[in-house]
Amino acid sequence: MAETKDKAPVPQPTKDFNLEKSLHKAEDFFYKNKNVITIAVLAVVVVVGGFFAYNQFVKQPNEKKAQEMVFHAQNYFAVDSFKLALNGDGNNYGFLQVAGKYGSTKAGNLAKYSAGICYIRLGEFQKGIDMLKSFGANDLLLQPTAYGLIGDAYMELNKTEEGIDFYKKAGHYNDNELTAPVYLFRAGMALEKAGKSQEAIAIYKEIKEKFPLTGEGREMDKYLARLGEVRN
C-alpha cells in the first residue's frame, strides 16, 4: 500500500477579502473624490516647490544683498561713527536701511541689533529699546546681551522696574559665565537702588552659588555683607 505523504495546506482566500472588489472600491473612491485628491496633491507640490523656489530665488539673494549692504555700516560702527553706521553716508546704507529692507534675513536681523546699540550710544534710549526688542536670535550670547542692553537703556530713562525685568531676563536666559553673572549682578544693583534689599540678596546668593569662579562670583561676599548677610 502506497504511503500517503502529508501535504502543506494550500491557503484558501478568506471570505472577508475580495481583491477585485477591493480594487473597484478604491477606484470608486478615487473617482468620487478625485477633485479633492488632485487639489491636495497639487497643494503639496506647490508648497514644497514654493519653499525651494523661495530659498533659491528670494531668500538666498536677499541674504547676499543684505550682507553687501551692511558692510559699510559695520565699518563705521567699528570706529564709533554711530550716526553714519545708523543712517548711512549718502552713498552707502546704514543699519536702519538694511533692517528696514531686509529685516527677515540674518544680516538684516543683526542690523537691528547693531542699530539698537547705535541709538543707545547716541543717547536715544527709547529708540534703542524699540530696535533691540525687534531683534531676535537663538544665540547664547547675542540674545541675552540684547536683553541686557534694553535693561541699561531703561535704567538711563529712570525706569528701574523695567530695567530690573530685562536684567533678570538677560541673566536667566542661559547659565553661561560670560553674560549671566554680569546681568544678574546688574539686576542686584538695580534692586538695591529700588530699595528691594531681600530680592537683591537672593540674586547675589544665586551669583555666588552658580558662578563662584567669575569676577562677579568672587565679589558677592562683599555685597552680601553690605546688606547684612555676613558669611559664616
Rank of each mutant, 00 (worst) to 15 (best):
D6M: 08
D6P: 02
D6E: 15
D6Y: 12
A8F: 14
A8T: 15
P11D: 13
Q12E: 07
E20L: 09
E20A: 15
K21C: 06
H24E: 13
D28R: 13
F30E: 05
F30S: 03
Y31G: 11
K32S: 05
K32C: 03
I39V: 15
V41K: 06
L42T: 08
A43T: 07
V47F: 15
V47N: 05
G49A: 09
G50D: 13
G50Y: 08
G50M: 08
F51D: 04
F51Q: 06
Y54H: 07
N55W: 09
Q56V: 02
Q56S: 11
Q56D: 13
F57M: 07
K59D: 13
Q60G: 10
K65M: 14
A66P: 05
E68G: 04
E68I: 03
V70F: 12
V70G: 00
H72R: 08
F77V: 09
V79G: 03
F82L: 10
F82R: 02
L84K: 15
L86W: 05
G90F: 11
Y93Q: 15
Y93E: 14
Y93C: 05
G94N: 10
V98S: 04
A99G: 07
Y102S: 01
Y102R: 02
T105H: 04
T105I: 10
K106E: 15
N109T: 09
K112M: 14
S114D: 11
I117P: 00
I117R: 00
C118A: 04
Y119C: 11
I120C: 08
I120P: 00
I120V: 09
L122Y: 12
L122A: 13
G123E: 10
D130L: 02
K133P: 01
S134P: 03
S134M: 07
F135T: 01
G136D: 08
N138G: 06
L140A: 08
L141P: 01
L142I: 14
A146K: 00
Y147V: 03
Y147W: 04
Y147F: 15
G148F: 02
I150Q: 01
I150A: 02
D152M: 03
A153D: 02
M155Y: 13
E156R: 13
E156M: 15
K159S: 13
K159V: 03
E161S: 14
E162W: 01
G163Q: 00
G163F: 00
I164V: 14
I164S: 02
F166D: 00
F166W: 10
F166S: 00
K168C: 05
A170H: 00
G171W: 01
G171P: 02
H172E: 12
N174W: 12
N176P: 09
E177D: 09
L178T: 10
A180E: 05
A180H: 07
V182C: 04
V182T: 13
L184F: 12
L184V: 06
F185E: 14
F185K: 12
A187W: 04
A187S: 11
A190W: 01
E192A: 06
G195A: 14
K196H: 04
S197N: 10
I201D: 01
A202L: 12
K205S: 03
E206M: 12
I207T: 07
K208E: 10
K208G: 00
K210P: 11
K210R: 12
K210W: 05
F211E: 04
P212T: 08
L213A: 10
G215T: 12
G215Y: 09
E216G: 03
M220V: 01
D221E: 10
D221N: 14
D221H: 01
Y223D: 05
Y223L: 13
L224S: 07
